[in-house]
């Protein structure tokens, strides 16, 4: 009887995790796609040079964006099962994908006036690593150099 109560409790958590996790994920993806379109006009590269323009650089600034996203109970269980058999852990794919895109977006939102962001780097921290009762969360930091350029007309007259 004890095992049965445990099972019911467990299934409830699983269902709650699945339903709310799915809703949250859908909502997040909608927001990500919309904002990505909005911020598409700031060219972002992983290189050290400003590309695509001959305008002079006015000033530069470090831009950062970070996010911590946790995975729902259902996906955590699914990942645990996948761990037994091996292969792609699909339930975590959306988690890391969302976290990285969100971090980059937040970085862009921190410097809305920038003309370009160069030398983009992504770093993951781990709050819960080594913790036995692990919280399945991912922490991403996106950072890069926001470049502000002189307008095209002044570029011609600048030394």
């Amino acid at each position: 009887m004890d095992a049965l109560i445990q099972l019911i409790f467990f299934l409830t958590l699983l269902t709650l995790g699945y339903v709310f996790g799915k809703i949250a994920e859908k909502k997040h993806y909608r927001s990500i796609i919309e904002r990505e379109k909005q911020w598409m006009q700031i060219p972002t590269t992983s290189g050290r040079r400003v590309l695509g323009t001959d305008r002079e650089v006015k000033r530069v600034q470090l831009a950062t964006g970070s996010v911590v996203i946790s995975v729902d109970y259902f996906k955590r269980i699914l990942a645990g099962l996948r761990n037994i058999f091996g292969g792609n852990v699909q339930s975590y794919e959306t988690l890391v994908d969302r976290a990285r895109r969100e971090a980059v977006l937040r970085m862009k939102e921190s410097c809305p006036q920038a003309d370009q962001i160069i030398n983009l780097r992504l770093e993951t921290a781990s709050i819960s690593k080594g913790n036995k009762n692990q919280i399945g969360s991912v922490e991403v930091l996106a950072y890069g150099t926001a470049v502000y350029l002189y307008p095209a007309s002044t570029a011609a007259t600048s030394p």
């Binding site: 400003v50 323009t53 794919e93 890391v96």
Partner: peptide
């Protein structure tokens, strides 16, 4: 610098970083 290179903004139509299998099916 590459003043000659041109910025062509775009976003991938399809997200290749996630699998599109149904999680419930995988779970079962």
């Amino acid at each position: 610098m590459h003043p000659s290179s041109e910025y062509r903004p775009g976003l991938p139509e399809q997200n290749d970083n996630v699998s599109h299998n149904h999680p419930l099916k995988e779970f079962a």
